[in-house]
Design a protein around this nucleic acid. Structure first.
Lengths: 228, 228
DNA sequence: AGGGTTAAGTTTACGCTGTTAGGTTACCGC
DNA sequence: GCGGTAACCTAACAGCGTAAACTTAACCCT
């Protein structure tokens, strides 16, 4: 990360092979989107930092939203990797679900601006870029979270819940609905903390612990002992 | 302007008293923000629909974000009113909490675009407009949900939970943390459904019921019988 | 009635924005 | 040396939020 020159200046214009330039643009775009948000960051400033003209970006990315899509891919690659470090089996079978959930929450809270980009920033032409279906007319435009790799991350959670339910660790019920609810709890936690930093929240660790405890209490068959 | 052809149209424009014009602008702005989102809607198109010039808006609102703040106020007025229709006491003391939560969720899902504007749209100069404190440097900009009337809505929830906990209906614990968690669950539900309309969610009523059931199971002292 | 004040709205302009069309330059294989 | 092409450019369009200065219409006060 601490590469040679800190920031490229327009003065020195070097030609780069496409792959390198693409990666450079992507890196700068992520920095700028994170610092200023999708709408406020501009193609012109991205180009300026890369030492090229704004229009040169379009040789590497279809448009601004395509840049976002690529950034989202990286975000989910990281999330999938983070979740994959959770051990396949734990002494207490519930622990794995707990660790997955906490892993998701900590991953999101560690990159609040990226989380916001991926899960809260509406993109108009998303379907065109990712080949994903567009919402029916009238529904709001989708976010990157609904993309392929987002679904992969969700599938990890869903699989774990299905397994726990079959084993009788979780109360029997609609396992898809439970998986939805678990994600919603995690997302509610992360997104509210991100979008309302000025709110007087309970200290972070307390609210995370309370969330996960409440959730598990809500879905397990036998109630585990509770921390006071 | 003697022989102006275009000026005739301008001359025909009706003058309105400030209060009326303000309300008209606000109405049009809400329609446009809802239809296209905050960033994509433009002051110029708002003005066009109102039959005035773009800069005339600035006689009534400080800037574009001030328009959003006013729209947010209305949103919360509606939410507070919706929650106030929930009866003060119910046969089962848990029912009131259930109704408050479901009320919140249904209110949000009934106005997805407004919910998105209020709880997910970052505003740069929010502190300047509302007099609210600004986040410390480095934290993301706040949304309208952190505003005074948002806090009032939250206080209703917090009060109910505090009371239920004192009465022993809820498991004893950190009542603020529990209130946070309850809001987070509700917000996660509404916001994910809004931002990911293309996702294959469990049917709406099922996921709402599962959410509320899970949450209540997680926080009550005595487990109520469960619907199969 | 005439002058002053003010509210309501206009014109003009500045410096931005994403994106397209078409031109230019540097390099690689022959 | 010479095409071909990959990488990049210039010019331009239509639109953006907003500040400054100006006009017009309505009212109040003498």
């Amino acid at each position: 990360m601490g590469g040679g020159e800190r920031q490229e200046i327009a003065a020195r214009r070097t030609r780069l092979p496409a792959a390198e330039r693409r990666e450079q643009i992507l890196r700068i775009a992520r920095e700028l989107f994170i610092a200023e948000g999708f709408e406020r960051a501009s193609m012109r400033r991205i180009a300026e930092r890369a030492g090229i003209t704004p229009t040169a970006i379009y040789d590497h990315f279809a448009d601004k939203e395509a840049l976002m899509a690529a950034i989202g891919e990286e975000f989910f690659d990281g999330l999938i990797e983070a979740l994959s470090t959770v051990p396949d089996a734990t002494p207490d079978p519930l622990d794995r679900l707990k660790m997955l959930l906490e892993g998701y929450v900590r991953y999101g809270l560690a990159r609040p601006r990226e989380y916001r980009l991926v899960f809260m920033t509406p993109l108009e032409g998303l379907g065109r870029i990712t080949g994903h279906r567009l919402p029916r007319d009238g529904t709001p435009p989708e976010c990157l979270g609904g993309t392929m790799k987002g679904a992969i991350s969700f599938a990890v959670l869903e699989g774990e819940i299905g397994m726990l339910m079959e084993r009788g660790v979780l109360r029997p019920g609609d396992k898809e609905a439970v998986a939805d609810v678990v994600w919603m709890m995690g997302h509610g936690l992360v997104s509210l903390l991100i979008t309302h930093p000025g709110f007087e929240w309970t200290p972070l660790d307390t609210v995370i612990r309370t969330s996960i405890d409440t959730l598990l209490h809500g879905i397990v068959a036998d109630l585990p002992p509770r921390h006071p």
